[in-house]
Design a protein around this nucleic acid. Structure first.
Lengths: 217, 217
DNA sequence: TGTACATCAGTGAACGCGCGTTCACTGATGTAC
DNA sequence: TGTACATCAGTGAACGCGCGTTCACTGATGTAC
C-alpha cells in the first residue's frame, strides 16, 4: 500500500522509440482514470481519445484490457520500489544507527507523500484492492506480492532496530511494519474523501512519531 | 472511514412489508458486489438475478443506478453511526474518566473490526472514495460529510481528554481523531490485499496503544 | 548508393454482446363505504 | 359482509448506446546486401 507514492521518471522521453512513448502515455492516462473512477468505469475509448490514437492502436500496445492493468501495476510497483530503495540508501548514508536512519527515512517518506497528493489523484494499490474481482488473477497476485514485499522490507529494518533498542509498547514488529503501509493507504483515502490534501502528510508525521515512541527515542 | 464497520440489523425481517424486504435484499447484494469489484462493474442484471426478481422490478425500488448508490451509502452511514453511538454509550457507562472511557471504546472498536473482516468483504467508504467519479455529486457529498462527522465525533472526545491529560507527543488532535479512521481504512486494505484477515484487528490494537501512549496512560 | 524486404506503429470499419432504462401491463393486497 | 377502487410489487419485451475486440490493410522507418 502506500504503493501509491511513486512518481513518473520522465527523463529522456524524446530519445525513446515512438511506440514506447505512446505506450507510456496510455499508461499515464489509465493510471489517473483508474484511480479516479475505477477500472471498469475507465473505457479504452476515452484513453485512446486522450492519447490521440485510434481504438485499434490501443490493441497494438496491449493484448487486451487486462494486459493494460498488468503492465500498469508492474510499472507502478517497480517505480515505487526503486524510490523506496533510493530513500533507504540516502537515510542509511546519513546515519549509521538503524533507528535514526529509519526515522530519517520516515522523514523523507513524509516529504514524499507531502507532494504526492498534489500530483496524484490516489493510490493504485488501493484502487486494485478495492476492485479486486475486476482484475485477472495475475494482477491480483502481483498486488498481493507487492504488499507483502513492502511488509518484509520494513520488517527487516525494524528487526535490526529491535536488536538494539527495546520496544516500549506491546506490539508485534510485523504490525509495526504494516503500519507504515496502513498509514499511507488510509491517509490517501482520508485526503481524497475530505478534500484536505495535507491530511495524508500529517498522518505520516504521526506515524513517524509513533515509531519513535515505540522504541523510546 | 472505518465507515466500513456497520453490521446488518436483520431483526423482525418477517414483519416488514414485502417491498421493503426486497429492497433490503438488493441493497445487501449491492453492498457485497460493490465492495468486491466496484460500482461500475456491478450490473443491475446480476443483482436482480441474485435477488430473484426481474430487471424492471429493480426500477420499482430505485429510480436509477445512482439512486441505488445513494440509498446504499445512506443506510450504511446511518447504521455505522448508530453502532458508534451505542459503543460510546457503553464505554462512557463503564468509566467516568474520558480517557479511560475512550480506551474502553477503542477496545470495543477493536472487537468490532475483529469479526468485521470475517463477515464483510470490505469498506463502502473506501470503495466510494476510490471510484469517486463513478458516483453522482449527492453521493460524493454524503461520503465526505460522513467522514467529517466521524472526525468531529472523535475530536470532541479527544478534546475532553486533553483538558485533563497533557499530550505526550507533538500532534494535532484533529490528526489523532483522523487516525482512528485512517487505521480502519488502511487496515481493511491491508487485510484484503494480503488475505490476512486478522491484520485489521491487530492494526486497531496498535492504534489504541498509540492513543494510550499519546496521553501517557 | 540503391534496392528489397521486414518490422513498427498504427488506421478504419465492423462485430456482437450486455448494459441501463422505459413502458404498457398485471395480479395480489389493502381500504372505504 | 360485499363490492369498488387504489396502491403495492412487481413482469416481459423492447430500446439504443457504448463497450471490448477483431481484421484486413498501410505508410513510415530500419536493415541487409
Amino acid at each position: 500500500m502506500d504503493g501509491c507514492l511513486a512518481t513518473k521518471t520522465a527523463q529522456e522521453v524524446h530519445l525513446r522509440p515512438k511506440g514506447a512513448r505512446t505506450r507510456e502515455r496510455i499508461l499515464d492516462l489509465a493510471y489517473d482514470a483508474i484511480v479516479e473512477k475505477g477500472f471498469a468505469a475507465t473505457s479504452i475509448e476515452e484513453l485512446v481519445e486522450a492519447a490521440g490514437i485510434s481504438r485499434s492502436g490501443f490493441f497494438y500496445h496491449f493484448k487486451d484490457k487486462s494486459d493494460l492493468a498488468r503492465q500498469l501495476l508492474q510499472r507502478f510497483v517497480a517505480e515505487l520500489e526503486q524510490q523506496l530503495d533510493e530513500m533507504e540508501r540516502r537515510a542509511r548514508e546519513l546515519h549509521e544507527d538503524p533507528l535514526h536512519a529509519f526515522l530519517i527515512f520516515l522523514k523523507l517518506y513524509e516529504e514524499m507523500v507531502g507532494d504526492f497528493m498534489a500530483r496524484h489523484p490516489g493510490c493504485l494499490v488501493a484502487a486494485v484492492t478495492y476492485q479486486d474481482r475486476s482484475f485477472d488473477p495475475v494482477v491480483r497476485a502481483l498486488n498481493r506480492d507487492a504488499v507483502l514485499y513492502r511488509r518484509g522490507r520494513f520488517l527487516a529494518w525494524l528487526e535490526e532496530i529491535a536488536a538494539l533498542y527495546p520496544l516500549r509498547i506491546k506490539v508485534d514488529l510485523v504490525d509495526l511494519a504494516d503500519h507504515v503501509n496502513v498509514t499511507a493507504d488510509g491517509g490517501i483515502i482520508l485526503s481524497k474523501a475530505t478534500g484536505d490534501l495535507a491530511a495524508l502528510r500529517r498522518q505520516a508525521a504521526l506515524m513517524r512519531e509513533t515509531i519513535r515512541l515505540a522504541f523510546g527515542a
